[in-house]
């Protein structure tokens, strides 16, 4: 034996999952939604997505290399996912410099200031989005007209999201049934024909991507299902009590980036609980807070805030919610 043999503790076999593979799995899952977005919003969608991805990856590289003196790990794809998700949460007519600020906040504040991948308590893309939402409310709440504004970027004609229409109308005392006439039908909403952020419009494409991630075992079903279920039940109860002032549950499920949030943002590994039981608590919390903000809050839309709020509870959930141990309760049959 000329070559030295390796000695290591067991196991000696390894699975082929890597962080890189999982991250690129998320990217593939997001592609259909991006395609639909390009169909409805045209070049605006392309410009915003590329700026967001490039600046997120650039910031990650620069911060790792020059501020943290670490070996840059942008190839692992996590910055790519953050960039893509940040873009998905922005209107397609957003000026380029605002996107770059958003990317800086997402990567710099949301991720790297806590030590990089794996240590950030809040979803970086959402930190970026919420920062922009509060800092640039005007730019962040003007959404281009789908299809019509395909060839326009900053100068696109804009309108309000379905949730915005409902919120404003209800504040003005208009009944829901009248407001529903102003917004597209449910089938249109499902496909994604509406005003909204870049990637949040098409529930169809997002769910397809979500199923892909489930099949590839990138995510588990607990978080999306618990969010959908809690939103459905909560809005359903409100709707049954007072159908005059409350939109129906299906409308709430299809609008305002709920699917994007539930399938892609809330399931972010780093900022979600580790145990199925904890995931139920977390998902239900997100659902309830989302509806509360939508119905009683000042904003028409609450998914991002709800996820960030529940992110803060994750360490607590992880501490107190433990997996079902083998042999803990004697269940003999």
């Amino acid at each position: 034996m000329d070559k030295l043999i390796t000695v290591s503790p067991s196991p000696h076999a390894y699975g082929d999952d890597t962080v890189k593979k999982l991250m690129y799995g998320v990217v593939y899952a997001l592609v259909p939604a991006l395609v639909i977005s390009v169909y409805f919003f045209g070049i605006g969608a392309l410009i915003v997505t590329s700026i967001s991805i490039v600046s997120c990856m650039a910031f990650e590289y620069l911060i790792q290399k020059y501020l943290m003196n670490a070996r840059p790990s942008i190839t692992d794809g996590s910055a790519l996912v953050t960039g893509l998700l940040l873009a998905f949460n922005l209107p397609t007519n957003l000026p380029w410099w605002i996107i770059i600020i958003g990317a800086l906040v997402a990567i710099g504040v949301g991720k790297m200031s806590f030590g990089g991948l794996g240590t950030n308590p809040f979803n970086p893309a959402l930190v970026g989005r919420v920062f922009l939402f509060i800092s640039f409310p005007a730019q962040m709440t003007s959404w281009p007209e789908p299809i019509v504004s395909r060839l326009q970027y900053a100068d696109a004609t804009t309108g309000a999201t379905p949730l915005g229409v409902v919120k404003e109308g209800l504040n003005a005392g208009v009944p829901v049934s009248r407001l529903m006439e102003q917004i597209p039908g449910y089938m249109e909403l499902f496909i994604g024909h509406m005003h909204g952020c870049l990637g949040e419009i098409s529930a169809l494409a997002l769910i397809a991507g979500g199923l892909y991630m489930l099949a590839k075992k990138i995510i588990t079903w607990h978080i999306p299902v618990s969010i959908f279920l809690s939103v459905f039940l909560f809005t359903g109860i409100l709707w049954l009590i007072n159908p005059y002032d409350n939109a129906d549950p299906l409308f709430h499920l299809l609008t305002g980036g709920l699917v994007l949030g539930a399938v892609y943002m809330a399931t972010d590994y780093v900022t979600s609980p580790m145990v199925p039981k904890g995931m139920w608590i977390y998902g239900t919390g997100i659902g309830v807070i989302t509806v509360a903000i939508r119905v009683w809050g000042a904003y028409p839309e609450g998914v991002s805030f709800a996820i960030l709020i529940m992110n803060a509870f994750v360490p607590l959930i992880n501490k107190y919610v433990k997996p079902e141990r083998f042999g803990e309760e004697v269940k003999n049959g």
């Binding site: 999982l22 780093v270 609980p273």
Partner: peptide, 27 residues
């Protein structure tokens, strides 16, 4: 023979999901 390079824990919870004894290996 060699192991994969060690990266940060991304808290994917896969170890929790596959532990046959219901433990939390990452923790």
């Amino acid at each position: 023979a060699k192991r994969k390079p060690v990266l940060n824990c991304v808290r994917c919870a896969k170890c929790v999901g596959i532990c046959p004894m219901g433990l939390e290996p990452y923790l």
